[in-house]
């Protein structure tokens, strides 16, 4: 079977529709992952032992099981207990929760890297716990972790094709549907691959710049 440029132009508009959803899911998922990760990282440091342990175990569990199965769980099991989610919302929640457990480790490393003296200074200045976090610790901890966080957001971007399994019409699903309509697989699947490769290569350049700008933090 030969590569057909006419066919490529014919399917391009459909694929671009998919690209939009892919990017939307990545952006929303990234925001959720950043928030969830911070929540988990702070929860694990809670003085309440049981809470800290519980959150630690849940995070460990989510990280040890496949995203695809979690997506199925959110999409198929939650409606049984009365929570109906649209495919895209379910997908974004899945991505955000899954990658939140990864970004939690980045936050943990970032927070651990803030020198002890800063904590002691905050205490000496009689700052409350809340003030200590928002005014002293997090502003110092977050900039060095930006490259590592960005790294996980790129990884998440590459996982978005999984959302096609729960019927989100993102790029992969659009490609599959045009492939099934015309029974030509070469062009759609190759274009999907090329698209992801292109974005990833751009992302790598962006990441190098971020690393240069903010320095590295151990992942």
């Amino acid at each position: 079977m030969e590569w057909d440029w006419n066919f490529v132009w014919q399917i391009m508009p459909t694929l671009i529709e998919g690209v939009k959803i892919t990017i939307l899911a990545t952006l929303l998922g990234s925001v959720l992952a950043a928030v969830v990760g911070l929540g988990i990282a702070l929860g694990r440091r809670s003085p309440n032992r049981i809470l800290a342990r519980g959150i630690g175990f849940v995070a460990e569990f989510i990280r040890g099981t496949p995203l695809l199965v979690q997506l199925y769980f959110i999409f198929y099991v939650l409606p049984d207990i009365g929570i109906l989610l649209s495919p895209l919302v379910a997908g974004v929640i899945g991505l955000g929760l899954h990658y939140g457990t990864y970004t939690a480790e980045v936050y943990r490393a970032g927070i651990d890297n803030v020198p002890r003296g800063q904590w002691e200074a905050a205490k000496a200045c009689n700052l409350s716990a809340r003030q200590t976090w928002t005014r002293v610790i997090l502003p110092q901890a977050i900039p060095p972790m930006i490259p590592a966080l960005a790294n996980y957001f790129i990884a998440m971007f590459k996982e978005t094709p999984l959302l096609s399994a729960i019927t989100v019409l993102e790029l992969m699903n659009q490609a599959k549907s045009v492939a099934n309509t015309y029974y030509r697989y070469i062009e759609p699947i190759t274009l999907v691959g090329a698209f992801f490769l292109a974005i990833s290569l751009v992302a790598v350049v962006l990441l190098r710049w971020l690393e240069h700008r903010y320095g590295r933090v151990e992942r």
């Binding site: 996982e159 094709p161 999984l162 697989y185 699947i189 999907v192 691959g193 990833s200 290569l201 790598v204």
Partner: peptide, 16 residues
């Protein structure tokens, strides 16, 4: 292989 996702690679291997 790091730039494209496992999902796309799998589909490529199986369908293309």
């Amino acid at each position: 292989f790091r730039g494209t996702s496992i999902f796309v690679q799998l589909f490529f291997a199986y369908f293309v």
